[in-house]
């Protein structure tokens, strides 16, 4: 974990990796909107197609992508079950009975199956596409992208620069503090502390001798960091220039056209095809 790529950044070079992080963030938002505008299976298919293309051009192994879905498997199954069982609508979508099974307030209907299939697909698409953002963008690039996107907020005196600096310092400190936690744990274990024994309450209590030194050391580090930053002429965001400029390239244009086509397509399908099948 001694790497900026904690979280789940997958370090390869690909088309998707090199798309501007600002656009990637905006695309994620656009994609989410598209998923929720999609009200028939053609539109959802279009969304899925865009996702497949994204995965294909990201060089992230499919196995890794599905790991993200596994994390929400319980949520997916649970939502699907609830939706199937509680949907009592008697609409008919295909030949056969509208209601397959009924017991008190529970029922399995055609509408319920269609509806919950819809929901499951939406959830899976949503989670997979979001995880593609973190797979293909370093935390540093994400921070830069967010800072750039939030720039308009400077107009209402929102401290965008300070926020971005805090985020980037936090990212810098995570591997350091994780190392330190490990060291303190070892030191306490060497002194006979029982970290991994006993019930939950005992274990939580055993964390106190780790957390307090960690906290103290974090404060000391913050102090030293402040001195070092001042020594390098840090005087807040005023007058400051930025070395790294995000620039749009042909990749961004292609990605933009794809996502624009998706949103337009979904809207058209919504208007001309209508809900469900």
């Amino acid at each position: 974990m001694k790497d900026v790529s904690f979280g789940q950044y997958y370090p390869v070079s690909s088309f998707v990796h090199r798309v501007d992080p600002r656009l990637k963030i905006l695309f994620l938002i656009a994609y989410i909107v598209a998923i929720f505008l999609a009200n028939n299976f053609y539109a959802l298919g279009a969304c899925a197609l865009v996702l497949v293309l994204t995965i294909a051009f990201s060089h992230v192994p499919v196995r890794k992508v599905f790991r993200a879905v596994r994390g929400i498997l319980f949520l997916v199954v649970f939502t699907a079950a609830i939706n199937v069982l509680f949907n009592a609508s008697e609409e008919v979508y295909w030949a056969g009975p509208a209601v397959y099974w009924k017991w008190k307030i529970f029922s399995v209907t055609q509408a319920g199956i269609v509806f919950s299939a819809f929901l499951v697909i939406r959830l899976v698409l949503l989670v997979t596409f979001s995880s593609m953002l973190t797979y293909t963008t370093t935390p540093v690039a994400l921070t830069d992208g967010l800072e750039s996107l939030l720039t308009p907020l400077k107009w209402i005196r929102f401290p965008v620069h300070a926020l971005a600096l805090i985020m980037s310092l936090a990212l810098r400190m995570i591997p350091i503090l994780m190392d330190e936690t490990e060291r303190i744990r070892d030191a306490q274990k060497a002194r006979g502390a029982a970290m991994d024994e006993g019930n939950l309450i005992k274990r939580v209590k055993a964390m106190i001798p780790v957390l307090i030194p960690l906290l103290l050391s974090a404060f000391r580090r913050a102090d030293e960091l402040g001195e070092a930053m001042e020594s390098r002429c840090y005087m807040g965001g005023k007058k400051r220039t930025k070395y790294k400029k995000l620039r749009f390239t042909w990749r961004d244009l292609i990605a933009f056209l794809l996502i624009a086509a998706l949103v337009t397509g979904v809207v058209l399908l919504r208007v001309y095809v209508g809900a469900f099948l």
């Binding site: 900026v4 070092a228 930053m229 390098r232 400051r240 220039t241 070395y243």
Partner: peptide, 16 residues
């Protein structure tokens, strides 16, 4: 201050 070498070296120069 930064996780990447280049960004860290740039910090002082950016500040002024």
């Amino acid at each position: 201050v930064s996780s990447i070498v280049e960004d860290d070296v740039a910090f002082g120069a950016e500040n002024v």
